[in-house]
Amino acid sequence: MFTFATDYFLLVFVSALGVIQIGASFGGLSGLLFLQAPKAARALGTVLAVAPFIWFFAVGERNINDYQGGLDAPTQALFFFLGTLAAGGVTFVVSSAVNWRMDRGAPAPEDGMDALRNASWARALAASLQYWRKNWRRRTKQYFSG
C-alpha cells in the first residue's frame, strides 16, 4: 500500500515528466522530446501532466492536516524536488535513447540547453563535457571573472 508521501512523489514525478515535454515542445528543444511531432509531444505531455492529478484525488481523501497523515510544507518541498529530479533523470535516459540518431549538426559545446534543439541530451552533454575537459583551465578563469 502506498503512503501519502509515495502518492505525492508519484504525482509530481509523472506530472513533471509531462510538463517537461510540454515546455520542451514550446521551447523547440527536440532533443528532449519523446515524440518529435510537436502536437503529439504536447498531447503526450498533457496526458502525463493531468492524469496523475485525476489518479491522486480519486484514490483517497487529500484534505488532511499534516499531523493527521498529510504532508507538512518542508516534506512537500522535499518530495517535489525529488520527484522533479527523478523526472529529469528519466527524461535524460528516455529522450537520449529515443533521439540517439538525431543529428542536425554537431552541438556547439557552449550552447547549453540550446544544443538540445539539434542533438539528444546525452550527445549534447558528451560534447559539452569533452569541451570542458579540454579547456577547463581557460574557461574556468573566464567564468569566475564574469
Binding site: 509530481v12 506530472s15 510538463v19 515546455g23 484525488f57
Partner: peptide, 21 residues
C-alpha cells in the same frame, strides 16, 4: 486542497524553465 493549485503552480515553474524561443 494543498495539492492541486500549489503543485500545479510549482510544476508551471518547471515548464517555465524550458520555455523561450
Amino acid at each position: 486542497s494543498d495539492y492541486l493549485i500549489p503543485v500545479s503552480l510549482a510544476l508551471a515553474l518547471v515548464g517555465t524553465w524550458f520555455a523561450g524561443g
